[in-house]
Design a protein around this nucleic acid. Structure first.
Lengths: 225, 225
DNA sequence: TTATTAATTAAACGTTTGATTAAAATTCGG
DNA sequence: CCGAATTTTAATCAAACGTTTAATTAATAA
């Protein structure tokens, strides 16, 4: 049986982390079904049985990959929200930036492998299968609900349905620049470049805030006409 | 050898279509790697060798699934663009609606299986692997370029980079409501409902247009500050 | 040192995968 | 009704899959 993470000693840590890193890349590149444990073990330079030794099966390995990163992002988002609402009600721009920046910054952190995880978020965020929805619900629904409430406080004209829509739209826009499909560069003949973090944040925040304000102005849900 | 589609007779047509329908569902639900030809054949109620008989291999089957639908959507988008620019330069709202409506409507057409294809678009549109990028480039890049040009004509303040960004953001927002992940319903406690086509179109168009206008106002790319 | 535990290994398990084959059934023009 | 072309079938292939096992090595505690 593998020891709890805190008690682990010697070589153990390296293998455990190497497996998680390799799995992150594999799931991001090929999806759950397309990623193979054999290839993951090979990429991590580890015996194939070690994957099951530490993570039991493919499903739990997938969950472990998501949980490691989600903790980071949620913590940073929570702190940002606390700070924002400490004194008064912030501007919409500041709120939306606080929501999106942690994810965008992680996605740009190639050295830490954040780009692979960014593609993985895009994957399970847009997948309807049970496993994807489970990790989304467990790891991102709590902060999503808090963010939606925050949106409604900042924009009193925003109903709950519009706030949910606005939040999901904003996230979807942010994720679209992180999928690293190369399509933006292709369609713009190289004019678009996602590598500049600050420029990306500014662009996405501007787009999302304008969109959310539009949802607040017009009322699109539950119309009685 | 399978006959060309036009000359086909008898049950052939049925098998061919049944395979394509089943493959569409499988790829949408499980991704390329997670979908199995055996399960597709079983779902289509067809011998497993028939899949290779008509589509040679898994890759070409995947391409065939996309090509069938992309033709429809592109044709409708092209016609809409022709009509819009026939007399004068249209309003941004009309242009964006013309771009997004065909896809959204297809995604709501459950009887024709459009919901499965909608999820499939989301899949390969957000995937960075070679196969996904190939089908995106072959089937959707031409209309994307035409749409981007149209955006720049409607909004003269929009640079090429911003137009590409705006187009991709708008598409991404539209696709996010089509992934049918059930997340919107979950986060809104049932308040959000994607089944109303007109309401969905109106909401997405309003969000996207406001966002695109924001990109035109502020200049976010190639700043020299 | 010895006993215990954790980490790692190579090998194999049964199953499923994408793909191929050759024969059988069906369809259809002449 | 015949013969050729097309469609369908069952059987099979090697390869890859996720997972398990038993044995071995390395580290820790008594």
């Amino acid at each position: 049986m593998p020891q709890a993470q805190a008690v682990q000693q010697g070589r153990a840590r390296d293998s455990r982390k190497a497996i998680l890193d390799a799995a992150e890349r594999a799931f991001a590149d090929f999806g759950f079904g397309g990623a193979s444990i054999r290839a993951i073990a090979r990429d991590a330079d580890v015996n194939q049985a070690m994957v099951h030794y530490y993570y039991q099966n493919k499903d739990q390995l997938f969950s472990a990959v998501v949980e490691r990163r989600a903790g980071d992002i949620n913590e940073r988002r929570d702190l940002a929200l606390d700070a924002l609402f400490d004194n008064a009600v912030p501007a919409l721009e500041d709120l939306v930036e606080a929501l999106l920046r942690p994810t965008i910054e992680l996605g740009h952190d190639v050295e830490r492998g954040g780009d692979a995880y960014a593609r993985l978020i895009v994957y399970f965020n847009n997948s309807a299968d049970e496993r994807s929805q489970r990790v989304a619900e467990e790891n991102y629904d709590p902060i999503a609900r808090r963010s939606i409430d925050a949106l409604m406080r900042v924009l009193p004209g925003l109903g709950r349905a519009e706030a949910v829509r606005g939040y999901l739209f904003a996230i979807s826009v942010a994720l679209s620049v992180m999928a690293k499909t190369g399509r933006a560069a292709r369609l713009s003949d190289g004019l678009c470049d996602d590598s500049n973090t600050e420029e990306t944040v500014a662009t996405v925040v501007a787009f999302a805030c304008a969109g959310i304000r539009a949802l607040a102005d017009g009322r699109f849900e539950n119309r009685q006409d």
